[in-house]
Design a protein around this nucleic acid. Sequence first.
RNA 1: CGGGCUGUCGUAUACCGGUAGUACGCAUGCUUUGGGAGCAUGUUGACUGGGUUCAAUUCCCAGCAGCCCGACCA
Length: 418
Amino acid sequence: MLQSKLSNFVRKEFPKDEEAYNAQILIRAGFIDKLMAGVYSYLPLGLKVIKKIEKIVRQRMDEVGAQELLMPVLHPKENWQKTGRWENLDVLFKVKAQEDKEYALGPTHEEIIVPLAQKTIFSYKDLPFGLYQIQTKLRNEPRAKSGILRGREFIMKDLYSFHTNEASLDEYYQMVEKAYAKIFSDFGIGDITVKTYSSGGSFSKYSHEFQTILENGEDTIYVCQKCKVAVNKEIIEEQKSCPVCRSTNLEEKKASETANIFKLMTKYSDPFQLSFKDSNGENKNVIMGCYGMGISRIMGILAEIFHDDKGLIWPKSVAPFGVHLIALHSKDEKSNQDVLKLAQKVYNELNQMGVETLYDDRVDKSPGEKFAESDLIGIPIRLVVSQKTHGKIEFKLRNSQNTDIIDFSDLTKYVKSE
RNA sequence: CGGGCUGUCGUAUACCGGUAGUACGCAUGCUUUGGGAGCAUGUUGACUGGGUUCAAUUCCCAGCAGCCCGACCA
């Protein structure tokens, strides 16, 4: 992509109406824009990151055999009344339409997927299976805060699984847990994201959260130094030791919840009478699990973790581009032509290799500004072509100070090895 | 939902009970090109509504908005 054609939302200053670092840097670097408290637009660069995150999540969900679907945002009131959450869920957005008709805006989708699932579940032979979606959720948070970490509108992946019995649910649950671990290591936060025991609700002792250790995190957790498992502060009074190894050597940490998995059992299949015929021909209610993951929130968490004082440092897996190619113009017409010719050649080569490249071809920007913006945006590999590279290419990683001068013929080798 | 702080060009800020200034941006021109370039010219602003006052962007009140703390957070 030519940077001269990219809508430029980069700012020289941090916004004054944000305190959370993730919002400050993502706004300044042109990834998001705030519409109002807790509601943000994803700008071209930010949307690229979101799509990369989604791609990884989809791939891992497909690996566990879950199928993607997309449910509506606009929900009938009756479904929410059926589970009692029309009255009891205080974050539920309710909208009035003409003739006093009322709707809910989806904060989560149990009320929709359960009646939907009934249309495909008849026999125990139809189970188990999982359905998921990646969708914008709406929650009327009493207090939006921390930039995109707690918004009123956000993107979430929600998976629901359906089973004949709890053993089947357990098996699926563990499978998803493993998939989540892979996802977090894909994002580069595998080693700081811990499975956390949290309060369980009516049918199980615990639910499980995946908490990413983060100084600005909103949650407090107690991490077992041996097992890399944690206990949420919510339940620390009743669970003072590691649930796995019983160690009481727990370290207090601030963390941010990236994902959450939960055994619903029959909590939602009961009100909707979601049932199947077992092998004896008896009707039984379906056992369910749900598995959430905050897609847009993860972008914020990654921004909180991967940066320095100059800007963002995206992990390769979610970076908006693989390479930032910068051409520096010079006043000498001949060498200027040479520089542009080489830069174009590099750009073409990278495109052919299938490496997504942002090519800073802008003629009216000074070198300093190009470098500053490049650091701000945080693309993993920076290539510079200028009069000073003398027909060669400067290669620099965003997370390193070192620069190498390389020949065009070594381009593939260098870019691929990173 | 309780408490606190804050609302000034597009952005970041300054001053002020009486003419609102600066930087960046943007526009035009010339120069410049390895770490957010220089000069010249031009361009844009006091959240809304009341009150006090001869006079309010400034002081007071209310509303609205943003941020922070708390409560809340399948």
